[in-house]
């Protein structure tokens, strides 16, 4: 499975269909490139990646999510290279039997991608010198009632 792409990500193509007939819920997260960060005006950004490790780590994250929650299907696609404002940077969708598992797993998957997948973001600003960005740390795995 390829979870990393250097091509533009289309939301329409990714959200079509439902793979598993036993799924009753699907939660989708779409991350876009924002025009500002930390008080600075963002013009564009560059995602650098360690591709083979990123693919492996995302597969590990999906496997862990499936082991924690009763989820049927997980889809992840992260774009790398040069991105402009409004571009889709990352897409995560989770199908589960019930909505609780789908919401919790989707949140955990994107948070853990931000923490453990070797992708780096360099932002280019209108009003400041460019810089590499550090992500915030991930929260504990939430319980699924």
């Amino acid at each position: 499975m390829n979870y990393i792409t250097d091509q533009p990500v289309s939301r329409a193509g990714l959200e079509m269909g439902k793979a598993n007939e036993s799924s009753g819920a699907k939660v989708t997260f779409v991350g876009y490139v924002r025009n500002h960060n930390d008080g600075k005006i963002v013009d564009k950004l560059y995602y650098e990646c360690y591709p083979s490790m990123a693919e492996k780590q995302i597969q590990n994250i999906i496997n862990r999510a499936k082991a924690i929650w009763n989820i049927k299907n997980v889809r992840v696609l992260h774009r790398v290279g040069w991105l402009r404002i409004g571009d889709i940077a990352v897409f995560v969708s989770v199908e589960a039997e019930h909505r609780d598992g789908a919401f919790l797993a989707c949140r955990w998957v994107i948070d853990t991608i931000k923490q453990d997948v070797p992708i780096w973001k360099k932002e280019f600003y209108s009003d400041h010198p460019e810089g590499w960005v550090s992500a915030s740390s991930v929260k504990e795995v939430p319980a699924c009632g």
């Binding site: 360690y50 490790m53 990123a54 990352v90 997948v117 070797p118 590499w132 992500a135």
Partner: peptide, 29 residues
């Protein structure tokens, strides 16, 4: 640090031919 594409602790012993990646703070997503 990552050895051969998995995160490892600093105490991990190296062996000939290992690929040691130094991973600065990541910011995907």
């Amino acid at each position: 640090f990552a050895l051969n594409e998995d995160f490892v602790a600093e105490e991990t012993l190296l062996k000939d031919g290992d690929r040691l990646a130094i991973i600065p703070p990541v910011a995907g997503g």
